[in-house]
Design a protein around this nucleic acid. Structure first.
Length: 594
RNA sequence: UGGGGAGUCGCCAAGUUGGUUAAGGCACUGGGUUUUGAUCCCAGCAUCCGAAGGUUCGAGUCCUUCCUCCUCAGCCA
């Protein structure tokens, strides 16, 4: 990445502290890099790596990225940027049964949308674990040759039983002491398709009595006849994550391999494996090191892949990019922005403590960036007619509205004022509640960017619903003219001319779940709650609105602040030229307690 | 109950080798500005760092014991 360097906040998180220390000790001063991933022999032909550190973002292409991944992306790519390093995008595609090109594409899109990429000065750092299958296979044979791996023919059930429990040691497999030659022959047979799926696995030979269950001879290669999205039908054996990931990191000369907390127990194996392969001459020092941080938990959403898939497949939402979903594709359609996510990740920090971030933090971040970035427009979401009785029916006059109060250089636009206007239904109350200072009989209010008007009454239908509000304007009070403030009013309401309005569809989104921790706890009858029980049935409201005419030209993904309402974005999917529809990204804060 | 982690203000989170009054952000509460009940500005907001002991002139930082939460027994990642 070649982007602006941001100053490094000293010791702002434990990973930065580790990197600063590593760098100050010149830990990577002689680390060689040949320009592409490879084993020790390959890297030795290279030169000292220009990247001071290497990190990686290694998603499995088996689903869509979500907000939690954004944290990891900003962490890994951000670290690389701040420390003169390089971050790789690597697809960890070692399980052919779950992965597909669709996911590879959506993940690539999301990473780029957040502002990162893989094209660096002299190299393209986009990799696939499956491209290392040959090297991984060699590493496995090396492990067998050095007596550190064996082919186990126990069934999965037998393996599970013999693995022991959390408090009891496991038992050695009857196949554990086979000869190197025998193991090698068997493993090659596995590769050559001589054995059925599930009939045997290759296991690392470590210690069946280890208190760390991950060290009790973990399986590292399995037989699985499945078509791989990248390697096709070339292989019928596939490496396990446990085995593959450390090797991927080492081949790419990653310095800091950052993952989430649940992999902590895996670290001893990570180090064990790389040390064995380095001893065998396959990998060179310095070897990558794994560090773990706490994954993101956000209130009012679910981030687990399983639950997201369920929401999509059972059609509780319209798709992976439903604006209510915490997927990056959904957030994007909702109008959330990369800058907002950047602010968010900076704000929540990185640590090892399990935590739940309040969803409002994310919303505040979006408001904060949109307040600065989004131009203002006028939108009447729940229209009711206001008639200015003392205004000529055939008259239309220009009013000037600033495009951005914080950026006068963005200029003003004209909106037309006429006798009949649309105003917000909630801006009129025939019987005002306490503290209400908008339109009410005999009350005065300013029509934003226009005149001060005095309410004279309203019309109602047979059911008592207000249908039209009447008022009279005060001619000398037009905004921007001398003496416009001769009449002071507290209320200030927005409006759109009936004759100059764009009638548009707007979607008002609310949170998808009613509970802060969806599915947590039990029902009154003692039954476990399901996260689906907490779905908010009113999470979207599609309404017909009256917008100022200029909004007709909004481009897909263009964000605006609809004054007094919130931030809205022209939907990237359903908008057509000249007829955009809008999604509410987030409301404005509202300090008025009704 | 074995191993590995984590517990600092309502929510996050600094606090490196022990050294005066425990950063910062968000939230919240006052006050000010404002033609968005928005934004912005100013002020306030942990005698206390999961608990209890101990070491020390001095401990969130060291020691002991205890408590709570997370995580690991896939031929998933």
């Amino acid at each position: 990445m070649s982007s602006e360097k941001t100053p490094i906040p000293a010791g702002s998180n434990f990973i930065r502290a580790i990197i600063e220390k590593d760098l100050s000790q010149n830990k990577y001063a002689t680390k060689k890099w040949a320009g592409s991933p490879g084993d020790a022999a390959h890297q030795d032909t290279g030169v000292v790596d220009v990247a001071k550190i290497r990190t990686r973002f290694p998603p499995e292409p088996n689903g869509y990225l979500h907000i939690g991944h954004a944290k990891s992306i900003f962490l890994n790519f951000g670290l690389a940027r701040d420390f003169d390093g390089i971050c790789h995008l690597r697809f960890d595609d070692t399980n052919p049964e779950k992965e597909s090109q669709e996911y590879v594409d959506s993940i690539s899109d999301a990473v780029q949308w957040l502002g990162f990429g893989w094209d660096n000065t002299n190299e393209t750092n986009l990799y696939f674990a499956s491209n290392y299958f040959d090297l991984m296979y060699r590493a496995a044979e090396s492990l067998i040759e050095t007596g550190h791996a064996y082919v186990d023919e126990q069934s999965a059930d037998e393996m599970r039983i013999n693995r022991g429990t959390l408090t009891e040691a496991g038992k050695d497999s009857p196949y554990r002491s086979r000869s190197v030659a025998d193991n090698l022959a068997r493993f090659r047979e596995m590769r050559d398709g001589k054995h059925a799926d599930g009939s045997m696995v290759l296991r690392a030979k470590i210690d069946m009595a280890s208190p760390n269950i991950n060290m009790r001879d973990p399986a590292i290669y399995r037989v699985r006849r499945a078509h791989h999205h990248n390697t096709g039908d070339k292989w019928c054996i596939y490496p396990m994550y446990t085995f593959a990931h450390p090797i991927e990191d080492a081949l790419e000369r990653i310095t800091h391999s950052i993952c989430t907390l649940e992999f902590e127990d895996q670290r001893p194996f990570y180090d064990w494996l790389l040390e064995r392969l380095a001893e065998a001459g396959l990998l060179a020092h310095p070897l990558p090191k794994q560090y773990e941080f706490a994954r993101l938990n956000l209130t009012y959403v679910v981030l687990s892949k399983r639950k997201l898939i369920q929401l999509v497949e059972e059609k509780h939402v319209s798709g992976w990019d439903d604006p209510r979903l915490p997927t990056l594709a959904g957030a994007r359609r909702r109008g959330y922005t990369p800058a907002g996510f950047k602010l968010f990740t900076d704000r929540i920090g990185v640590s090892k403590a399990d935590s739940w971030i309040e969803y409002t933090i994310l919303e505040d971040c979006m408001r904060e960036v949109l307040n600065v970035d989004a131009e203002r427009r006028i939108a009447v979401l729940d229209p009711i007619k206001l008639v200015i009785d003392n205004y000529p029916a055939d008259q239309s006059e220009d009013c000037f509205a600033p495009n951005h109060p914080l950026k006068p250089e963005l200029g003003k636009r004209t909106v037309q004022l006429t006798k009949e206007l649309w105003i917000e239904r909630e801006d009129f109350m025939e019987v005002p509640s306490k503290g209400f200072f908008r339109l009410t009989p005999d009350g005065m209010v300013r029509l934003r960017y226009g005149y001060v008007v005095k309410c004279t009454g309203c019309e109602k239908d047979a059911d008592g619903n207000v249908t039209v509000v009447h008022c009279e304007y005060l001619p000398d009070t037009k905004s921007g003219t001398p003496g416009s403030d001769s009449v002071k009013v507290k209320g200030n309401i927005h409006w759109v001319s009936v004759a100059h309005a764009y009638e548009a569809e707007v979607r008002l989104y609310d949170r998808l779940f009613k509970e802060a921790h969806p599915g947590e706890g039990k029902h009154e009858d003692g039954r476990e709650r399901d996260f689906l029980d907490d779905i908010n049935q009113d999470s979207v409201q599609v309404i017909t609105t009256q917008l100022e005419l200029s909004l007709k030209d909004a481009k897909p993904e263009e964000s605006f602040q609809f004054e007094r309402h919130g931030y809205f974005v022209a939907d990237k999917k359903d908008s057509v030229a000249g007829k955009p529809v809008f999604n509410r990204t987030v409301t404005l804060r509202d300090a008025w307690q009704k």
